Computed example of a mutant assay.
Amino acid sequence: ASTMAASIAGDDACRQRYGDPGPEEDWPEAVALADDLRWRVAALFHEEYARVDGPFGELPDAELVRWLAEHQHMVASCELGQEVLP
């Protein structure tokens, strides 16, 4: 579930774009948002991954899926920013 969630959330794209970003506090915004999204997507598959922090934490499943469909290009290219958050 974690690997699939990372792919869906754009984690692969972020690693290609930024490499290994190092300590979390130094991550570019798009990488940090992809990480938050990865955890929320993983929660779709396994409740044990559920976290309530971050901008996607309280988003209902159906709304998350809709948001992902609408922002697929930005997610897939690691271009997420505050302006597109739900």
Rank of each mutant, 00 (worst) to 15 (best):
H46M: 09
L68Y: 05
R51C: 00
C78T: 08
A62W: 02
G54R: 04
G54K: 01
L33T: 05
C78F: 06
D35Q: 13
R51E: 11
A69K: 12
A30S: 15
Q72M: 09
W67R: 02
L37A: 03
A34S: 15
W39Q: 07
H46K: 11
A42G: 13
E63S: 14
A42I: 10
R40Q: 15
R38N: 00
D61T: 11
A43P: 01
V65E: 14
A34Q: 08
V75F: 05
A43V: 10
G57W: 12
H46D: 15
A43Y: 08
A30N: 01
F45W: 11
H71A: 10
L44C: 13
E63G: 07
V31R: 15
R66D: 15
E29L: 14
A30M: 01
L68A: 07
V65L: 14
A62D: 14
H46E: 14
L64P: 05
V65W: 04
L37W: 00
R40Y: 10
Y49V: 03
F45T: 07
R40T: 15
E29C: 03
V75R: 06
E29S: 00
Q72F: 01
P55N: 04
G54S: 09
V52C: 03
F45A: 15
S77W: 02
L68Q: 09
A30G: 03
R66V: 12
P55S: 08
E47M: 09
